[in-house]
Design a protein around this nucleic acid. Sequence first.
DNA 1: GTCAACTTAAACAAAT
DNA 2: GATTTGTTTAAGTTGA
Length: 660
Amino acid sequence: MMVESASETIRSAPSGQNGVGSLSGQADGSSGGATGTTASGTGREVTTGADSNGEMSPAELLHFQQQQSGALGGASSWVGVQGTGLTGRILQVPVSVAMMSPQMLTPQQMQQILSPPQLQALLQQQQALMLQQLQEYYKKQQEQLHLQLLTQQQAGKPQPKEALGNKQLAFQQQLLQMQQLQQQHLLNLQRQGLVSLQPNQASGPLQTLPQAAVCPTDLPQLWKGEGAPGQPAEDGVKQEGLDLTGTAATATSFAAPPKVSPPLSHHTLPNGQPTVLTSRRDSSSHEETPGSHPLYGHGECKWPGCETLCEDLGQFIKHLNTEHALDDRSTAQCRVQMQVVQQLEIQLAKESERLQAMMAHLHMRPSEPKPFSQPVTVSAADSFPDGLVHPPTSAAAPVTPLRPPGLGSASLHGGGPARRRSSDKFCSPISSELAQNHEFYKNADVRPPFTYASLIRQAILETPDRQLTLNEIYNWFTRMFAYFRRNTATWKNAVRHNLSLHKCFVRVENVKGAVWTVDEREYQKRRPPKMTGSPTLVKNMISGLSYGALNASYQAALAESSFPLLNSPGMLNPGSASSLLPLSHDDVGAPVEPLPSNGSSSPPRLSPPQYSHQVQVKEEPAEAEEDRQPGPPLGAPNPSASGPPEDRDLEEELPGEELS
DNA sequence: GTCAACTTAAACAAAT
DNA sequence: GATTTGTTTAAGTTGA
């Protein structure tokens, strides 16, 4: 299908289509096509801008910038998905081809048709053409900007400093993006095997663009001393050669995982991201490490594009002073590296903003933006949810309740019957857990780490009269959990199954029809005897629930979840006072699912009116508690009691009762 | 390895 | 007759 489509596109390409579609189709389906569209638009826009007289309104400029951002976004997505060389190639090809039109041939086809020298000549010609257009465009833009500045100054209406700065910044970013496109284009060609970059093969235009990118303001010191803004520093350009190309490759390869095999060229990509970091250190804390050098590591020079082996630091220093002295070439390389860093910072800001938006969307109460360099640390004293600080009523599964709901690996769309085996019986009180993470479950498509039985029980107990129809139970599930808004047939069947299977759920006929109630005694009977009866086991559980273990588990879960903002107070605050129950042995030894106030430890308090005409459908077991439970299923509301049922349960649930 | 709890799926019947 | 509700059985997984 895709092959046919690609072939069709290829055949029709000469009639006017660009080559993006053909390559996209040939390579891959969706992703390539999408990127291709963006790249195509960018290329078209660039051409239009270059062909025009250079006049571009702010709106057009913004549009152009957005398109460029889109193209870069495509590159970013390539960064994200680039697990294989093929994928990266797929997504990158359209950018190249969009610029290589109108040949309308895939690189492979061109390789078949043309000899390598012809290919290189062709590519260089195209690059030169494209870059010439770009240069022309940017020169005009720069002139226009200068003109505007002058005009505004002469008019005595100086534009607000901030506006000017923004404009220049935008312009700078635009230039940087174009540079990246250019560099990526080169890298694409390398990856496609169309270009085997040799040290002196970096064409002039490839290097002149950075010169054009020189902005009259906002340039660091290193930029000074270069040629006047807008005037290419030809000397520096000519000397850049391979090293600059290598740096350019670095600029694009910072996002490329090392898995991507280097291009056919024998010139390997030098230092990916570490180069960037090294460069930053180079400019900031260079002299703070006398015993080492940020540009020296693993016995080789970390200068972008260098990788010269140096036996020791002395040799490296010597090499550094000779090969990377303060000259035009080094300055140009440093400049490129700065641009790389700037671009990365811009990208970081974008991603950070995106993360904030995502968190806000998920109602995760985004905290103040944190630098990503900040490690995710959880202070056990102040960050644990309340249900976590005190041993959450059970020791058996400390991790599960600690794990921010649904963020654990086992609960995220996990497959298989056992994915939710974080049994409710060993979890923190479901109601407190739900209360804490209500918004999360409500909005995140995450399976709650509770059993159907516990959820059904919770649904019933949440109602004032402790009874629900089946449909109301359904509604509660869908209302409380985004997860249950899909696969309705499955979980509804499970709900019905659980209602029928467990004796703790009692069907009651009343005026409304059939409703379901909870027999807490039966529910508690589901607990494993060993959990309630064995003091030794309880002791072990207590020891197993040491604070440190909790903390470690939670931190591990957090690290696993990659939701650092869950540490925000909104998610992990100590919780309400009601849930901050003392860490009593009762909690530990007691059943995980706390008994409601009308549980076994206390006499049945209220008999809801509806129970007067109830019809006990289910047959109680022989040892049923008719003797001790004269009334209908326990689960009747306790209006007099304050606070969540489980809180009362924790207080009232006595081991003695549980042992029965 | 066994057992209990749990999940999922499915079939079936009764009620709506 | 279609849908909903309720029951039951079976198979599989997991943790104790």
